[in-house]
Design a protein around this nucleic acid. Structure first.
Lengths: 246, 246
DNA sequence: CGATCGCTTGAGCAAAATCAAACCTCGTGG
DNA sequence: CCACGAGGTTTGATTTTGCTCAAGCGATCG
C-alpha cells in the first residue's frame, strides 16, 4: 500500500527491492481511516508520529481569527505529513481530510531506523520535502501574480502531474475530489468566481470537468495559458546517480 | 560576522562556544560582495556551495514568461540560501541582492563536516529551514486571504520580528530597504496601490515610514489589524532540551 | 419527501489595476 | 554650482477584476 510513495520517490532515485519492501511493511503496520472533513492534525498539536497518506485526499489549511480559511497545500496518496515533527514542537496549521482517507501512522523511531538503515531512503525523503517546499513557493506566485483563469489552470496542471507521478491518472483524466468552495479557499477566490472561471476554462475546451472527473484534453495548451513551468516539481531524477541497480 | 546566524539559531537552542567559533570561522573563510540588483543565484543554476547572508538584504523571486515578477521571500543577515543544493540539481528560482550584500560562501563539504561534528548545529539548521518553509506557507495565506492593508501590516510584523531575532532593530524601529515596487511584487499589489495602502497605515498611526526607516509605535496594534499570529515563526526555543550548558 | 449540499445565475458594488502625469531627491557630469 | 537624468514616490481619473448578496436549481440521502 506504500505503492504511491514508492512511485513518487522513484522520480528521484530508483529504490532497491529491499527498500521497497521495508517501506511496504512500515506502511502496513498501523492504518487509520478518516472521514471527509475530519482533521488529521490540528494547529497547536504536538504530533508524535508521521502520517503517510495511503488513499484519499487531505489538505493543509489555516483559519484566520475571523473565519477566513486558506488551503496551503493538498496531500494526495504517497504524501507524508509530516517530517517536521522531528524538530518543531507545535503544528502551525491543521491538516484535514477532504475525501475518506486511509493513513499509515508511522512512529518517529521507525522512521529513524529506516533512514539510518537506508541512506538512499533518507535522501529520497529529503527530496520529497524539498519539492513540497518548492510547491509552496510556487503557490505564492500563483495566488499573487496570476489572474483567476491562469491560476485555476495552473493548479490543475500541477495536480494532474502530481497524480500522474503516483499513478493516479488514466490517459488525460484524473479525479479532483474537491468542491468549488475548496477551490476558492485554495486559490484565494470567491466560490462564485471559481464557478465562473471554471465555465470559462470549459468554454475554451481547456478542461472537461464533470463532477469530480477532470479531463485535460491538451495538457500543453493548459500549461500555456497557465504560464506553467514544471521545473519546481524536480521531476528529472536528481538522485539518479545513487540509483539501486536492480 | 556570523553573529546574526548565531542569534537566530539560539532562538532554537543554545550553542556551545565551540560551535559558535566554528560558525564564525566558517563564515569568515570566503566572503563575497554584491551590488544591489545583482543576482546571487539564477534560476537554472546548479549551485555548489551554500551562501550565508552576512550583511544586507536579498530576495528569492520568480519571473513569469510575460515579465510579471514575484518575490517569494526575503533573506536578511543570518539567512542561509540554500541547503537544498545537497539534493536538488537545479534552482527553480533566483535569489537577488536588494541592498549591497556581503555573503559567506561555504563549500558543501565544510557544511557536512560542521554538521557531522556538531549534531546540535545540524538540528538548528534543520529548524531554520523548517521555519523558512512555514514562512512560505504563511505568505500563501497572506497574499490570498488578507486584503491590502492587512497584508502589508502582516509583512511588516513578520519582518520586524525576524529582524529583532537577529538584533537588527532598535526599540520600535528597523530598516526596510525595499522600494514600493518591491513591496508590490511581494504582496501581489500594484505599486500605486502599495503607495495608497502605506498612506492608510500611516494615517492610522500604525507605522511611521520615512525613507527606509520603519517605526512601529505599537506592534500589538499592528498585529491586530494584520490578524498576525506568530506561531509560524516557532520562537519558543523548541530545541531547549538540547541547549549547551555554558 | 423534505433537507442539505453543491452548483449556477444575475445584479450591483468594492477593491485594486491601469494609465498618465507630476514631483521629489540625489548623484553625476558639465 | 547648477542642470540633468534616473529612480522612486505621489496623485487623479478611469477601468477591470473579482466580491457580495440573493435566489434558484439539482442532485443525493436519510
Amino acid at each position: 500500500m506504500a505503492i504511491h510513495l514508492i512511485r513518487k520517490l522513484e522520480h528521484f532515485t530508483k529504490l532497491s527491492s529491499e527498500e521497497k519492501t521495508s517501506l511496504e511493511r512500515t506502511a502496513a503496520q498501523k492504518v487509520r481511516q478518516l472521514n471527509p472533513r475530519e482533521d488529521i492534525v490540528y494547529e497547536g498539536d504536538r504530533p508524535s508520529q508521521i502520517n503517510l497518506i495511503l488513499e484519499g485526499w487531505a489538505c493543509r489549511y489555516k483559519v484566520l481569527e475571523d473565519g477566513r480559511r486558506q488551503i496551503m497545500g493538498y496531500s494526495i496518496p504517497g504524501d507524508i505529513c509530516d517530517m517536521r515533527m522531528f524538530i518543531l514542537k507545535e503544528m502551525d496549521h491543521s491538516i484535514g481530510a477532504i475525501t475518506p482517507v486511509s493513513l499509515a501512522e508511522i512512529p518517529k523511531d521507525t522512521i529513524i531506523e529506516l533512514t539510518d538503515t537506508y541512506p538512499r531512503l533518507s535522501r529520497a525523503f529529503w527530496w520529497d520535502s524539498l519539492v513540497e517546499n518548492a510547491i509552496s513557493r510556487e503557490w505564492i506566485v500563483n495566488n499573487s501574480q496570476r489572474e483567476a483563469t491562469e491560476r485555476m489552470a495552473h493548479l490543475f496542471c500541477e495536480l494532474f502531474i502530481r497524480l500522474r507521478m503516483v499513478g493516479l491518472t488514466r490517459d488525460h483524466s484524473c479525479e479532483i475530489p474537491v468542491t468549488q468552495a475548496d477551490l476558492g479557499e485554495t486559490l484565494g477566490l470567491s466560490t462564485v468566481h471559481v464557478n465562473r472561471t471554471l465555465q470559462e476554462l470549459r468554454a475554451s475546451n481547456l478542461i472537461v470537468l464533470k463532477g469530480k472527473a477532470l479531463t485535460i484534453p491538451d495538457l500543453e495548451a493548459l500549461q500555456e495559458v497557465a504560464l506553467f513551468n514544471d521545473n519546481y516539481l524536480h521531476l528529472n531524477r536528481d538522485g539518479h546517480e545513487m540509483d539501486a541497480n536492480e
